[in-house]
Design a binder for these strands. Sequence first.
DNA 1: TCTGGGGTCCTAGGACCC
DNA 2: TCTGGGGTCCTAGGACCC
Length: 422
Amino acid sequence: MSMAGHRRIIMHVDVNSAFLAWQATYDLQRGSTLDLREIPSAVGGNQAERRGIILAKSTPAKKYGVETGEVLWQALQKCPSLVVVPPNYDLYMKCSNALYAVLEEYSPKVQRFSVDEVFMEYTNMQPHFGEPVEAAHRIKDRIRKELGFTVNVGIGPNKLTAKMAGELKKPDMVHTLMTREEIEKKMWPLPVRELFMVGRQTEKKLKLMNIYTIGELARADRKFLCDKLKSFGNVVWCYANGLDESPVHAGYNLIMKGIGNSTTIKHDVDTHEDAYKVLLSLTESVSLRLRAARACCRVISVEFRTDQLQGYSHQRKIFAATNVTMEIFGVVKELFDEGWKGEKLRHLGVRVTDLTADDFMQMTVFDQEQKDKKMALDAAIDRIRSRYGNSAVMRAVFADGNFAPMMGGSGAEDYPVMSSIL
DNA sequence: TCTGGGGTCCTAGGACCC
DNA sequence: TCTGGGGTCCTAGGACCC
């Protein structure tokens, strides 16, 4: 909440080619003489495990037309010399934490927006750290020197303008979008697709209205847009005009809305037995994270993706909130049986939503003793796993080694992800 | 030779209630 | 025997973000 007439100053810090830069930094610190950022390179999933897409690319790779999200073999056609390294999520989490720790020194209000993006409230911080642009340069240079990777810093009167400023030109730059004039000059000429929240579908609809640039969207009739795009029309119109009042949510105090894990399976699954193994594995990691967050869930959903890449889902609200692995798994099995249309499945997911705090767990009328036992078992397994690692305890169904006992979730701490409305 | 995994929010339609 | 209308809850699907 900002007082009327009070001018906020928000900074957005965005790591340049985060996954790739972090890997390169790590390699250099361990004595490598090759900087991945200086050659055509990418972080990519494992093709043999059918996860072969580009997760991040170097600037030289970008010059060959390599794009994030594209399938590996296509990227290799464009750039045969492309060096592809596997992802390392634990490393990313460590680098992200290090970045966050530095930024916390400059403001009491720092919001983790994603693993590689942070919003920082700089309002009223000038007496301590100087004018915003100078401070941003110092912060940026300090991160490069101390942590070894570069960031862009965007500065604006709200989160939207700060974020858009940070995207203007990369890498290792500071940009501002403080005034109406700056917005019109720097942001309005950009293709409308570059506006936060304008994806492929919205771009297509806007084109049909003859809107191609952010400026054209900003000057379009608001009522007309609401007519065509419903409430979303208002959102994008405001964003195009640099309007946004959303607060910076400091630290972890945002409530998580849901926890999910999903996985692409090495071989298509077409039996209940195999699907159950995958689903149990996913349920294990979801419920572990749920308990770590000291939460229970009231909605459980199972997500399907077929070998034809057709996706669908099935969910149910349960009577009493729970975080007991085998209770959740019981519902997951039911949902799978009801939802599965019998196709070959390449991908399965488990997600829990409608979370509540676990401190006053609703007493179940029946079988309280049974429930206590299950909760004690989960707690004991969680303790062993946190002490000796996730593979220290394994359910017997996984003993044949065909499926991993804990799929998804890196064990890294969870933090709230920003909402799409900023 | 195919297209990851983690999220959030919005909308539409049906069930159900008064 | 009649079919108005408002409200809430639930589920599925779609759009977007990184």
